[in-house]
Amino acid sequence: MNGDPFQILGVSSQATEDEIKSAYRKLAKKYHPDLNPNSPTAEAKMKEINEAYTEAMRIKKGGGSSGSWYRSQSSDYQYSGFNNWQYDYRPNDASQFQPQFQATYDYISTSRYYDALQMLHQIPDRNALWNYLAALANMGLGNRLTAVNYARSAYQMEPGNAQYRELYEQLSAPARSYQQQGTHYGYPMNSLCSNPFISCIAINLFCNCFRCGRCC
């Protein structure tokens, strides 16, 4: 794309995300292929505003998005999860470092996450450090749900450890921003049992049809 994406969309670089969306919509309506059949100019313009929109939103998000949650778990488990990590995850409490923990850590730092997990399975004492390393190894494999649960256990076992807290906070950061945003749109909810839309959700297929009559 050539040129400033904000200029192409006709908004200032200070515009909010909603303003960018709105500006995009107006232009997209104008140059929509359905309204401009067989017009190469409109087609080129549409391509330009699509790219400008994507770029403007990327800039607004502070460059790059965290991408797909589940795509990070590749089918062959070769994903290296530490590329974007911004802090030193090496455990700093060396006094706890039994040889097996050291070996686990060495596997993690060389992206051998499966070996790290195997090693962890042989350690009977599942202390905070164990949970911390299990979180890192699972993170490396793209097992984010498992990773967060271990990170939480490590933090709960040793709330005073800044490193455990940092890992847990980093892994659960998307959840916090979702909850924050959700407060504007009805999350969390109260008194749901009266919700008619799913009052018969689990009953059976037939309900699906008749539900329409009662509630929606």
Binding site: R25, M57, L145, V148, P174, Y178
Partner: peptide, 21 residues
């Protein structure tokens, strides 16, 4: 709830990246 929230957060992030009005 934690696991579901993390997953929902991904849906929300992708959704908010789209020009929906």
């Amino acid at each position: 709830r934690q696991s579901l929230t993390l997953i929902a957060a991904q849906a929300a992030e992708a959704l908010e990246s789209l020009p929906l009005e």
